[in-house]
Design a binder for these strands. Sequence first.
DNA 1: TGTTAGCACTCGACCTTGCAGAGTGCTAAC
DNA 2: GTTAGCACTCTGCAAGGTCGAGTGCTAACA
Lengths: 342, 342
Amino acid sequence: MSLDARKQKILQAIVRDYILTAEPVGSRTIARRYLMDISAATIRNEMADLEEMGFLHQPHTSAGRIPSESGYRFYVDNLLDEATLSEQEVQAIKQIYHQQAQVLENVIQEAAHLLSSLTDYMALASGPQAGSSRLQKLHMMEVQKGKALVVVVSDNGLVANRMINLPDDIEQSDLDGISDYINRNFYNVTWNQMLKSGILNVRQDIGRRIEQFDQVVELIQELLLGESTADIYLGGTARILVQPEFQDVNRVRSILKLLDHREAMLSLVGEKQFTDNVQVTIGSENQLEEVENCSLVTALYRWNGAPVGWVGVLGPTRMDYARAMTAVREVSKLLTDIFNKG
Amino acid sequence: MSLDARKQKILQAIVRDYILTAEPVGSRTIARRYLMDISAATIRNEMADLEEMGFLHQPHTSAGRIPSESGYRFYVDNLLDEATLSEQEVQAIKQIYHQQAQVLENVIQEAAHLLSSLTDYMALASGPQAGSSRLQKLHMMEVQKGKALVVVVSDNGLVANRMINLPDDIEQSDLDGISDYINRNFYNVTWNQMLKSGILNVRQDIGRRIEQFDQVVELIQELLLGESTADIYLGGTARILVQPEFQDVNRVRSILKLLDHREAMLSLVGEKQFTDNVQVTIGSENQLEEVENCSLVTALYRWNGAPVGWVGVLGPTRMDYARAMTAVREVSKLLTDIFNKG
DNA sequence: TGTTAGCACTCGACCTTGCAGAGTGCTAAC
DNA sequence: GTTAGCACTCTGCAAGGTCGAGTGCTAACA
């Protein structure tokens, strides 16, 4: 039994209506509201088929149908109409672009808020994490006797810093020597290349002089590999509570627990995502069971051409996918534009 | 009518029982469970008095009594017994202290998690914000042609950095000149003193050479005055949902909305708090209406003797104040210890 | 004068019952 | 292959009844 045109139309109608109302959809509703040229009885027959094929299910005998995860999946892959943003919404996006003083964190945070207000779901955004970027500059500055600040910059413009302790006999000139050495030998070099060309040897040479040189190496590694427990920005956490499926506190709890484990949130998106398309993960397609009745819509943003982070929304599986996808796409474009204009 | 010893005992019993059960407390319960030497009828009379005095109220005629905000206030100020932490809990605290690689953000985040798990409420912590600290060191490094990173360190060990654009004709040696000048003239100087001794003049001198010198000044100001929208760390957001008063989603919503406005969360604690004691704010004593049926227990932590940030828990007004206060006190001490040992 | 027992009363929580409405599956007719 | 009709199922809701916890008041007691 294949999904002929009529079945597809019916499935589409059911998904749309359910997204709108959050109530199980009956055959009569479909006949009246969406497909006035066929009767409810016919639709009932088709619905029975669709249920057997796994695209729908019934909460109980005398209720309407609800799309299953495969139902949503088919809808997203085949039946979706592009959504468009209103002129007003487009303006709201542009406003961020033209904003003053674009400090990295603020821009991403604003983007998350914007995305959440566009979709009415909870928005997530990762801070930029350079996958395998290159060392641009390292600097060590003595801040007070016995304490120095190490600052590392990558070619993507990311910055990391850490305070380290020094033995008493080290002076700023020694630090300059070390950072000069590193800058000369490892400029524009990735972490992997560093390993090969011997940053570990440097560690041995210098290790005697700076006990905590390990921390410097670690800092470089974290920055270049993007392995730091990078920042996650959230927007509209409270908005998910508006959705009728989250009226029950127990359902919300598992999502909120995620907020406590930001490293877990990074894993939500994972590494599969290296396409420019908007990605949709529906229900249990997500690895984390905390969000097994949620869907996630995400997209990458880029910095100097390379993907460095992502934005997305998390909502119920009964999500307005068309709208969410458009909003996520536009906001990710916005971030890419902002980061590449400077 | 004054609060004689017996009334105090009864109030104490009611608050304790209500904290425990979250159910309105009846006279019989008190007589049986707490004060077996007086009868329920007597307690009823006393309770009527306590209600008239504003320490209790009744949800409806035939229900028990619930402490009012003034009831909690009197309890916290006069009737509280010190709580103690279990050996196990003390160990958990010490564990953070002895942890490796104490990166600032991680330590504070861990502290928030710890505090939340100790109390079962939501924990908040501000990142260090130096109130009026002193410039320790400024460094400007050219990262690529036309782009420089400015790094500023305060005497509290706080670090801020920002990327600025440069005109083409500026080189690293020029940047060094400028930062040398600032370091020589403003070392160990507060923002207020800088204004007096003329950082604005410097701006005029140098302004011609670096268009974006404003941003450098702004960065210094933000760091020294602690006016940056500093980081707020949260722990156990999901835990508040366990409390019976937050079974209703609408009550949770207003709290979660706070999470979206981190600058508002800073204002929760505000400036009144410059004592070393643990501070308790009950219900509408809080400025923000979002938390009008919550209580907040906070304490400062210090860095080199100066108060730089705070930790606290947010829970229902029916909070185990004794325990919360002890936990908050210990965790704030922990942070102070950690920051001062290095 | 303060304390206590007893009693009538109140109110919410909970259960049962009955009904209306929405929706289905099946069958027979078109 | 499509449709109308019908019996059946299940939820949601409102009405009514009972139970139990708790109160305020009064009268008796120490």
